[in-house]
Design a protein around this nucleic acid. Sequence first.
DNA 1: TAAAAAAGTTAGTTATGACTAACAAATCTA
DNA 2: TAGATTTGTTAGTCATAACTAACTTTTTTA
Lengths: 228, 228
Amino acid sequence: MTNKSNSNNLTKSEEDYLKAIFQLLIGDNSRKVGNNQLAEYLKVSPASTNNMIKKLKAKQYVFSEKYGKLELTEEGKSIAVRLIRKHRLWETFLCNYLNFTWDEVHEVAEQLEHIKSNKLIDELDSFMDFPTKDPHGEMIPNANGEYSLLPKITLSSLDEGDVCQLISVNDGSVTFLKYVSEIGLALSSEIKVLEIRDFDKSIKIGFNTSVETVTRKFADNVFVKIVS
Amino acid sequence: MTNKSNSNNLTKSEEDYLKAIFQLLIGDNSRKVGNNQLAEYLKVSPASTNNMIKKLKAKQYVFSEKYGKLELTEEGKSIAVRLIRKHRLWETFLCNYLNFTWDEVHEVAEQLEHIKSNKLIDELDSFMDFPTKDPHGEMIPNANGEYSLLPKITLSSLDEGDVCQLISVNDGSVTFLKYVSEIGLALSSEIKVLEIRDFDKSIKIGFNTSVETVTRKFADNVFVKIVS
DNA sequence: TAAAAAAGTTAGTTATGACTAACAAATCTA
DNA sequence: TAGATTTGTTAGTCATAACTAACTTTTTTA
């Protein structure tokens, strides 16, 4: 392995940008990931992202043509994956050992993922016996940065009558996560699509002993595996 | 309790300065704690500390007269104590659960102490069953910021023939901590002062089955309780 | 007690990473 | 395809927190 000794001399901001670009790239492989999209995702101005992109290009973590789509170099990807690994391991620790609920972990993990210590994260991984999924059902990359991406099927893409199992949820919004818990959905829940209403695309679903109607927006943030 | 809702809108730097002032104040109650001393402790220029002191005065965490000694307000002290609590709880976690040695924990804890989440630190405290001493033997303030300071007696202040027990060590230097472990000293070790050499003030000590000669500087960083 | 040394302060500079305003290029759409 | 809209870029500003250099006040000591 010609693995560069992970310099890791990045600022918190540089790390945040690399992770954001990575998330946007895996989230939407088809469309171009551009400067304004990144700015909106990070809730900063396009001028700020443009500036940072320049810096990350100079450091060879990012490349793109002028006015073109953003891409990560191997080193850039590697840094992003390590951040995601740290984020998800911390989330797992908070949920499984420190009584956090799945809607509480994100904000704290955003801070913890920037702690610089390889030993810390690898020992934490070992302490928890090498978990492979975080509390939201997302995969956790291993110490070598390897990970497997299941294709993401949203609940909203199913047809009436389909039966599926809840695999993971988008962890971006606290109120969404609270809502998911409140109605009684959890990882592995078996969900049947009872009806899709043409009028507003809302979806009536059945699970356990409950029946709920959820919006299209809700269903876009729930990822499932089709059972039948 | 008219406890101000702990705003906690401090930057990492502001927190570092408050903690440093607190450490200098409890470390040396007698002498004045001044601007240059703080600068040296934090390894920044006196101009930098002077600047930051101004900001902390404006925020009412610090007070001092021009050219006078630095002091902390109650709120300033409270912030410093909470930082020390976080630092020491993390150190304890790293040592007791993640296989860190006592010379490895400081650097990582310096980062972890700035994570902002009351729930995180209180749950961590509870998870470890409310430890009262960190791996170096230092007290850990409780969730209300209460703590007890034992008078710090250094090994170097003892006389020939005295017997003492190792209570805590200064955690500032990695090489010092490694050295302490290497010669076989640990918390609670019973140490007998066998001889103090006039020439260079070096001290011959006996503990367990070992006899070692240590320098005055070494003995200044070892804190003990006198047994006889 | 007067000169030297130490300690503290001020002014001005730098880098990071935000911002707004103005402008340029690319893409959509009528 | 031309104009409108969206997207991307540039220039210039601000706050934070570091710095050096120069200067002032206080303390030490000869």
